[in-house]
Computed example of a mutant assay.
Amino acid sequence: MNVLILGNGKDGTAAHLHRALSEAGATVDYLDTRFFPTKLRMCWEPSAGVGYLTLPGGRRMNLEDIHSVFWRTLGEIYVPDLEDPHQQRVAYNDGMSMLRSLIQLCPARWINSWDAYQFHKEKPRQLTRAQQLGVTIPATAIGNDPQAVIEFVQWRERVIFKPVYGGAHTQLVSPAHLEPERLNSVLSLAPVTLQEYIPGTNIRSYVIGDAVYSAEIRSPSVDFREDKEAQLIPVEVPEMIREQSVAITRAFMMEWTAIDWRLTPRGEYYFLEANPSPMFVHFENQTDYPITRDLVNLLMQ
């Protein structure tokens, strides 16, 4: 059984899953896009509906022989520097077009899919879809209108801000952030996501198929990802939250995910986000939840 991991062995999560799949009897290779097109070869014949990959080590496989692909990270392709910038752009665009096409044409089971990956890149849609499912979300404003930002903050006791796309930690809004010249300058560069700060506890729920594994994350930080000493305590979430977790996963076109919730002292759960390719090894080690086992089973079904 051929299984690919989109990513590379320098990533601890990818390496961990590579070992687990190999021990379970799968033939596992990395699909490392950094080697395309210099060492990783691809071919697709639309007229025949067939294609193949030749990996950097020389192993060649037909696309129909790939059983499943685990989406860990989609890296940049590597086009060597060319003297002509136009030719450089043409080569890069050609490579990315081929890569994007192959990901979507390969008949293997992708966990998670291209559609899930694209949906995750559009966080405003993600929050809107969650609310449409009846899931509670924090009061949120997303945009680059300075007046709208000021009005949103003025009506709330505490507000956090974070990137629209992701890639940086959450911070509390301070008076310095709202200084007119600074605010106008920042919002002229990029929009921002603002949310009402929800006091309470961080809960992370991993969903794999119909299984939901949840833990309380104890940390004094506004963004627990900054806290290397954060504690993970297994918890049972209400049945409604379990059902919402599965519903979110399916509505976001995923087969597995990590959902971040905020639990208030009054017992209310607020949805924050769902990640289509979360790290999980530390979570599993702290909680003893069988995440690796379930992912291996999912990829080898």
Results as ranks from 00 to 15, higher is better:
26 A>D: 06
296 V>N: 14
271 F>V: 04
127 L>I: 13
56 P>T: 07
19 R>A: 07
146 P>T: 10
228 K>R: 13
212 V>N: 09
246 V>D: 03
146 P>K: 10
285 N>D: 15
290 P>A: 01
159 V>C: 03
272 L>P: 05
242 R>T: 06
91 A>N: 11
32 D>A: 03
32 D>K: 03
276 P>K: 12
42 M>G: 07
293 R>I: 05
59 R>Y: 14
142 I>Y: 04
167 G>P: 04
120 H>E: 14
129 R>L: 15
55 L>F: 15
233 I>V: 15
40 L>Q: 06
282 H>E: 14
286 Q>P: 00
174 S>G: 00
142 I>K: 02
266 R>I: 00
193 T>N: 15
216 E>K: 15
301 Q>E: 13
42 M>L: 15
244 Q>R: 06
288 D>I: 00
273 E>Q: 14
199 P>N: 05
176 A>L: 13
68 S>W: 08
206 Y>M: 09
100 R>H: 13
48 A>V: 14
6 L>M: 12
35 F>S: 02
65 D>I: 09
32 D>L: 04
254 M>L: 11
65 D>W: 10
14 A>R: 06
235 V>Y: 07
134 G>W: 09
110 W>K: 12
292 T>I: 11
123 K>W: 06
24 A>N: 07
191 P>M: 13
162 K>H: 01
255 E>S: 13
232 L>D: 01
168 A>H: 10
30 Y>V: 06
72 R>Q: 15
214 S>Y: 09
117 Y>G: 05
251 A>V: 06
191 P>R: 11
113 S>D: 11
215 A>P: 13
64 E>R: 15
17 L>I: 03
102 L>Y: 09
54 T>P: 00
46 P>I: 07
41 R>C: 08
13 T>A: 11
270 Y>T: 04
140 T>V: 00
58 G>M: 08
145 D>T: 07
240 M>L: 12
66 I>W: 08
259 I>L: 10
277 S>T: 14
144 N>S: 15
188 S>I: 08
216 E>L: 14
72 R>I: 11
125 R>D: 10
229 E>D: 15
137 I>W: 00
236 E>G: 05
255 E>W: 11
154 Q>V: 02
245 S>F: 01
